[in-house]
Simulated assay, not measured.
Amino acid sequence: MSYTVTSLPAEPFAPLFQMDDEALAARGARRMIADAPLGFPCRVSLDDARPGETLILVNYEHQPAPTPFRASHAIFVREGVEPVSTVDEIPPALKRRLLSLRAFDASGMMRAADMAEGAAAGALIERLFEDPEIAYLHAHYAKWGCYAARIDRA
């Protein structure tokens, strides 16, 4: 079964890069500089920022469904990158990490969850989508628990 991995759009985050640190702090966000080749996974490009690149660390509501599973968490976003959508391919930042995959039905209720190394996550994605009640998946970085990307049937 084919699947699509989709990043967040860039537009909602663009104004954050024009704010000073005080305005960001008022929104609970922070400007950060990547200081390592891994550890700063952008949710728009679905790849890690390179050392020296500027990112915004901000809370993002990735599961807005009015259910007990409504959720938000911290994410990194980079300026000037394009959104990503892949078919049957795990994007670089996800491929490098242990993932928690959470399966939701159309009403936003979680029906299943499991973990896989990112490079091997395709088989788990396909298995979760065998259940016709699963409408979409959310990938999370398992160690930090933060949202990574949305996965849908292609």
Rank of each mutant, 00 (worst) to 15 (best):
R30P: 01
E53K: 12
S107R: 12
A113W: 03
D114F: 01
R50T: 15
R70S: 03
R70D: 04
P51T: 08
A148Q: 01
P83C: 07
V81P: 13
A93C: 08
L98C: 09
L55T: 08
R70I: 02
G108N: 02
K95M: 04
G145R: 08
L55V: 14
L55F: 13
E133V: 01
A142Q: 10
T54R: 14
G118R: 00
A149C: 04
P51R: 05
G108A: 07
A116P: 00
I90T: 10
C42F: 06
P51V: 01
I125R: 12
I75G: 10
E89R: 15
G80T: 15
S72M: 02
I33T: 15
L99D: 01
A116E: 00
S45C: 12
M110A: 13
G118C: 04
D35M: 01
A135K: 09
V77D: 03
I33M: 14
P41I: 06
C42M: 10
K143M: 07
E133A: 13
D47K: 06
C42Y: 05
R102K: 12
Q63M: 13
E126H: 04
A142L: 06
A106V: 04
R150E: 03
A26W: 02
P64F: 09
P41E: 06
I125Y: 02
A106G: 13
A142E: 13
S107K: 12
E133I: 01
V87C: 08
A103Q: 02
D114I: 00
E79N: 15
R97A: 07
